[in-house]
Design a protein around this nucleic acid. Structure first.
Lengths: 149, 149
DNA sequence: TAACATCACTTGCGTATTGCAAGTTAAAAT
DNA sequence: ATTTTAACTTGCAATACGCAAGTGATGTTA
């Protein structure tokens, strides 16, 4: 228990969001869960952008403290922890989708080009799409493969 | 010219967004422009969260380099610079709105309580609302006062 | 069951970034 | 001509980051 409620600079909703998840790495961890179905420390370490081990550990801890992730033990292997999105974390999916839409528009080299159907659906109805995706991600599905044409 | 295109860790659309604006202060500057109609260095310095002068200067420079803000001279006062959102910057409004929606849901002390009509409109149709707000903000309007009940 | 491998971290340490205070420069106001 | 204002810049201590190496608990292999 040491989430964003304490030591918050303001309760402006933009600021609250930034203090909770607005970090270089936090949203990339969520991206890996949502799109690639990653769940374990070792999975996250493999990210394209290259997190270092101490930073990854501290971000996972923070996201758990914020109530965005929850940590569980792997039943078959006592060394491993499993990280899952909580409802609060799943509700960041629409935010991430809007970021994707913006980047798709302004980054001329965007990898969003690989997932045109998803981009189109975000544009036409992010809210409806997100509701569907939240259900699928909550079931542990990695959504990327279903949108690669 | 030294925007996000160079030195980018990846062209993942989430990463692109984070490298362009995913900074403690960048989105708060945009918030101040959108909601409060701020345009000048001195205005931004007064933000509730307390930016320091060097950080503010470096963020404004970066946002101009990214093509999110543009800087112009004040015609009546040669000391002042005026910062305005570019189309690329205005297109971050839907992202900011999704963050507001999320914070409104999960921060029990959220100041989003002060603007329930805006929150409701974001929820029902962020895309349409944003189109409208973009036009108003492009005209220099501060939208906060029109949503305070 | 003893040796080795794997996983999830933690620790040390050099570097980069932040935050605060004070200083600078150019333009306006008096 | 002097003072004030606006927008920065500079210096420096404190924090945060990034890399490499180490640790301890658990799992696998011979």
């Amino acid at each position: 228990m040491s989430g964003t409620q304490e030591n918050l600079r303001s309760h402006c909703p933009v600021n609250y969001g930034l203090e909770a998840f607005g970090d270089r790495w936090a949203l990339l961890i969520l991206r890996d869960i949502i799109f690639r179905g990653k769940r374990k420390y070792g999975d996250f370490l493999q990210s394209e952008e290259g997190v270092s081990t101490n930073i990854l550990a501290s971000r996972l801890t923070r996201l758990v403290e914020e109530g965005i992730l929850e940590r569980a033990e792997d039943e078959n292997d006592g060394r491993k922890s499993i990280y899952k999105l909580t409802p609060k974390g799943l509700d960041l999916i629409p935010v991430i989708f809007e970021i994707i839409l913006w980047s798709a528009k302004y980054d001329k080299h965007s990898q969003a080009k690989l997932i045109p159907r998803l981009v189109q659906q975000i544009k036409s109805n992010n809210r409806e799409l997100s509701g569907d995706i939240i259900r699928r991600v909550a079931n542990g599905e990695a959504i990327l493969k279903t949108y690669l044409d």
